[in-house]
Structure formats: structure tokens, C-alpha cells
Design a protein around this nucleic acid. Structure first.
Length: 232
DNA sequence: AACTTATCCAACCGCCGCTAC
DNA sequence: AGTAGCGGCGGTTGGATAAGT
């Protein structure tokens, strides 16, 4: 493994400790449990392996499709993606993506390899319907610049709060768009009344100090995702 | 059967944001 | 305002195992 494997005895001690004291306060867990592990190892072991209701085994087609959709929307926010897959951990999703999906969906990486394994019909069928639209199997190429398309989609895709219902809580993150990408992109962005708008009406402004386009709106991703019908 | 290569995945590491002081 | 401590996250590593030669 990438470190020292956990023993059954350590698992038992950690499990008993969490059952007794509850989750959180990870800095105290190693001492309370009598483990010679750091807080992070304890937390990770609990979250990825010992926690109840963790789903093992291979991902279903529905789960894979949802991962692809959510990754298009959120990028590498594995914990958010995993939060929408009951029983799956962020580490599981990340590993699955890195092993099974990234090579198939990242054309820059795959075009560096002679054996681009996206050429088979079965492989293309693994993609979501929208990914299949963008991938031209006959030429083995993408009809859109996929990286830019994915990034733009992930940044611009969030609908306005009024489109998804009111979102009263202050949102936790900003949306940024690289200026070069902004300059080179068509539809996702357009101008209206002196404002730059995303394809769903997201108001964007250029932050010169950061060299980035910045959204004036904030998004509560968790709320947003729950409002999208990703299971289609 | 022995060896090499590829793949999988558990674990570690470093960074970031938040909070309390 | 500055700083230390914490939880949490994503990227990376490397051992185990499967597949190929």
C-alpha cells in the first residue's frame, strides 16, 4: 500500500473509540483509541473503510454516469461527488475516476498515447450521452475542445438561483474563469448592457489583479446539485 | 513456471480554510 | 491583526495482485 496497512486490532480499537466518543475531535482519537497513528490516518481509515453503510464492489452504470455528469459540473470535487453517491467515499470515486474514466475522457492525455482506447464502440458507450455527442468515434476525436468545454461547463453550468429556487444561505465559493478561456470561448459567454454574461445569465466581471473572470454570484454547490435532475 | 508489465486501491502528504485565542 | 491548531480535501505514492509474454 501507500503506507503501513491497518491491522484488524487497529481497526477494532478505532471502531470502538468512534462508537464510544463519536466522530470529530480527530486530534484526540489516536490517544483515546490507543493507536500509534496520526489524526489524519484515523479519520481516513474511518471514512473510507470502517464507517457503516460503505458500499463495496464495482460501480453501477448509473453511478458511473452520475460521476461523469457531476465531474463535468464540479470538477475534481470528489467529496461533493461522493456525497451524491450513497455508500461511496471520495477516495473510491477519485480512484475510480483516475483508473477508469480519466484516460477515456481526457483527450490530451489519451492523444499522448498511441493506443487511445477510446476507439472501440464499447468504450465510447461508457461515456455519458453528452460525452458521446462530443466524441466522434469515426475520427477518434472530439467535436469540441473537451478540456475547455468541460471547464467552461463546470464553471458556467450552475443555473441562477431563481432558476433552481431561492437559495437563502450565503454560498461558499466563487466561480472563476480564466481570461484566455473567456476570450477564446463562444456561446458560454456573451455581453449584454455592458455586462459579461454566462450562457445561463451568470454575471461575470474581470478581476485584473487576479487575471481572472469572477462571477458576481456565488453558488451553494450542494444545494445546486440536489436541485438538478442528474439521475435523468 | 518464471519473469515482466499493468492495474487497482489503501494510505500518506501537503495545502487550504475556518475558528479560537 | 496575527497566529496556532484543527478538520477536510485533492494529489500522489507504492505495495499487492492480475494479466501478459
Amino acid at each position: 500500500m501507500g503506507g503501513v496497512a491497518w491491522t484488524e486490532e487497529e481497526d477494532h480499537l478505532l471502531k470502538r473509540c468512534i462508537e464510544q466518543y463519536g466522530e470529530g475531535k480527530w486530534h484526540r482519537v489516536p490517544k483515546l483509541a490507543g493507536l500509534n497513528r496520526c489524526r489524519k490516518s484515523c479519520r481516513l481509515r474511518w471514512l473510507n473503510y470502517l464507517r457503516p453503510n460503505i458500499k463495496r464492489g464495482s460501480f453501477t452504470e448509473e453511478e458511473v454516469d452520475l460521476i461523469i455528469k457531476l465531474h463535468n459540473l464540479l470538477g475534481n470535487r470528489w467529496s461533493l461527488i461522493a456525497g451524491r453517491l450513497p455508500g461511496r467515499t471520495a477516495n473510491d470515486v477519485k480512484n475510480y475516476w483516475n483508473c477508469h474514466l480519466s484516460k477515456k475522457l481526457d483527450p490530451q492525455q489519451s492523444c499522448n498515447h498511441e493506443d487511445n482506447d477510446l476507439n472501440t464502440k464499447g468504450d465510447v458507450e461508457m461515456l455519458s450521452p453528452s460525452q458521446q455527442r462530443d466524441f466522434d468515434a469515426s475520427s477518434g476525436g472530439w467535436t469540441l475542445p473537451p478540456t475547455a468545454a468541460l471547464e467552461a461547463q463546470s464553471l458556467v453550468h450552475p443555473p441562477m438561483p431563481e432558476e433552481i429556487g431561492t437559495s437563502p444561505s450565503p454560498p461558499p465559493q466563487m466561480s472563476y474563469v480564466d481570461q484566455a478561456e473567456f476570450n477564446s470561448s463562444n456561446p458560454p459567454f456573451f455581453e449584454e448592457d455592458g455586462h459579461v454574461l454566462g450562457d445561463l445569465g451568470m454575471d461575470l466581471q474581470f478581476d485584473g489583479s487576479a487575471g481572472l473572470m469572477q462571477s458576481s454570484k456565488h453558488w451553494d454547490w450542494d444545494e445546486l446539485i440536489s436541485d438538478l435532475d442528474l439521475w435523468g
